[in-house]
Structures are given as C-alpha cells and as structure tokens.
C-alpha cells in the first residue's frame, strides 16, 4: 500500500473547529487570526492548530493570516447535527491519512486492528509525529464522524461505517 502525500492532522479538538466557525460567522465571515486569539484569550499556538484543522477539513481558508469562512463552512453552520457529521465524514474520507487507515481496516477480516498495529503504521507514515497523540486525535475525529471506532477494553481500532 503506497503512502503518498500523507499530511498529519493537528492535535486539536473538533469542538474548537466548530467554535471557530461560529465565531467567524459572528464576525461576518472573516477575521485576523491574531485578533481571534486575543479576543478569545486563546494561545496563538493553539489557535494555529485550530485554523490548520479547519482548513484541512475545507471549512475555512487562511490567506495572509486571516481566517475566512469557505462555502462548506457556511453550509456546516446552516446544517443540523447529523448533516454536520455527514459533511465531516465526507471530508475526512478524502484525507490521505484517513483513507489509508480505511483501506487498511477494510483489508482485515473483522475490519479491525489492535491499537499497537495502528501505532506502528502511524510511526512509519509520519515519523516526526508522536504516534500516541496522533492516534488519540484520529480516534476522536473518527468517532465524531462515525468513521472509526475504538474499544479501549479490547484495544481494537475498527471501521465504524462508510
């Protein structure tokens, strides 16, 4: 399975991304990143992660330090909970790391893998990312989008639905 162009996902709560979209809507759809961090008393480093995550998901763009709501971000804001999850699910399926893991899981008989095996793949694909943290973020995003599940008692990472 060739791994092409795998970009990591930032260690960021999805709830932060949603908060950023709501905040941008209140600001008319565009705001300076530095001002957002200042007004929310948010660490700028953390806000950069949120901006990056929202951009990876196609919800905002970040020209010249500004954060701008993209049409998909506006669509997300106008949607109900289940439709929001659907938007995220479709966006995540397009992300190389998620699609890699989906292919990997589909190739397993029971569509699941031990956490240790997933960590090995992550370490191989993204050697400069701490695999434990990346795993936790993948699990949280995957759970929210109902793409991946993780059972801590059995330590199994699995495909939820497609």
């Amino acid at each position: 399975m060739p791994a092409v162009n795998i970009i990591p996902i930032p260690d960021c709560h999805l709830t932060w991304v949603f908060g950023l979209l709501e905040f941008l809507e209140d600001r008319g759809g565009r705001e300076d990143g530095y001002k957002i961090a200042r007004d929310l008393q948010f660490k700028f480093g953390d806000l950069l992660k949120v901006m990056k995550a929202a951009e990876i998901l196609g919800l905002v763009s970040t020209p010249a330090g500004d954060v701008v709501l993209e049409p998909l971000g506006r669509q997300w804001l106008a949607s109900d909970m289940n439709h929001r999850k659907l938007i995220l699910r479709e966006q995540l399926k397009k992300h190389p790391l998620f699609s890699y893991l989906m292919r990997l899981l589909r190739a397993q008989e029971d569509r699941s893998l031990a956490k240790e095996v997933v960590l090995e793949h992550l370490a191989m694909l993204l050697p400069s990312e701490p695999p434990q943290r990346l795993f936790q973020t993948l699990v949280n995003w995957g759970r929210y989008a109902e793409l991946f599940g993780y059972n801590k008692d059995e330590d199994r990472f699995y495909l939820d639905q497609e």
Binding site: T15, V139, R143, Y144, A145, E146, K152, D153, D160
Partner: peptide, 16 residues
C-alpha cells in the same frame, strides 16, 4: 452529537 462515542471512557474525551 455523541454518536460514535458510546463506548468511550471520560478520560478519552475533551472537556467539550
């Protein structure tokens, strides 16, 4: 909006 998190434990979750 917690569909998908049914079997998660609190320590796996963010504050939100």
């Amino acid at each position: 909006g917690l569909d998908g998190f049914e079997e998660a434990y609190p320590r796996e979750l963010s504050g939100g």
